[in-house]
Amino acid sequence: MTDAVVVAEGLHKSYGDTPVLRGVGLTLHRGEVLALLGPNGAGKTTTVKILSTLLPLDGGSATVAGYDVVRDAAQVRRHISLTGQQVALDLKATGLENLTMIAKLSRVPRRQVKARVAELLDGVGLADVAGRRVATYSGGMRRRLDLAAGLIARPRVLFLDEPTTGLDPRSRRDLWELVRDVVAGGTSLFLTTQYLEEADELADRIALIDHGVVAAQGTADELKRRVGQARVELDLADAADALRIRTAFPDIADTASDTSAASPTVALATDGSLAHVRELIAGVESTGVVPASWRLREPTLDDVFLTLTGHAAHAPDAPEPGTTITQEKAA
């Protein structure tokens, strides 16, 4: 494939005796957004670090912008930029100083540094606070500045590792807007996220990663199609009811959701046609189970995850301590 800007094949990586990547294969095409979607500890950051030349691999191979990440690491670094999971900013420096430094290190021609930095500060909406120290910025402002730092070099491939973890919904949307602008400018984006919604919003293609393996790859629609067109979701009284429904519909009932909960929900896959839905409702009635409520809905990526990996994607809303924004050490 000639237009692939990232190709990873059979990536293996262990920390000590613990295998973290167990044969990750991925492709990112030019101008495309690929979301590597997976829960905590799935291996997203490890994959990004290998592709951005920060970690050696134990097995497999990868090329980025046509260069081998091991043999031609220096070349790779000329064509990528990385905005990692941890914010990489000097808190005691101002926003302007931070970006100016990265611009110089990114080989922006000296005479263009000032203009480029101003353009980016404006682009991320931080022009007004550019002269303030980053220590005084909110988490969202730091994320935006960090993203701007990643964009300075106009990279061919941009890696964003969980760019919106820990942000409020509003800041998350702002950041998505920014990312869309960047991609419209021709940059190929390799994004990791644990938010299904984020992958759905931003990505052309999604790779589901779980326990160091890519469980499925495709567009959001393709992935959804693999789990049925729609679902009838039943809110039930107890586990016994859930078991009865599952027994009655062994092929189409989801089996991974937690039925020990106080009021379990069981989903039945359907093509969404009136005839099939009517048939399902009749089937439910014949079991004697009376759902507290029910609905017909489109499949979500949650369903995809549940079906393809056997467990929920589980994206906790609260950021993990230490994984998002570094706290300032004593001022």
Partner: peptide, 17 residues
Amino acid sequence: EQDMSGGMVDRLRSLPT
């Protein structure tokens, strides 16, 4: 040490620097 333990080291090492 602060450069190494924060996110800075990853950014710096991913640059041509």
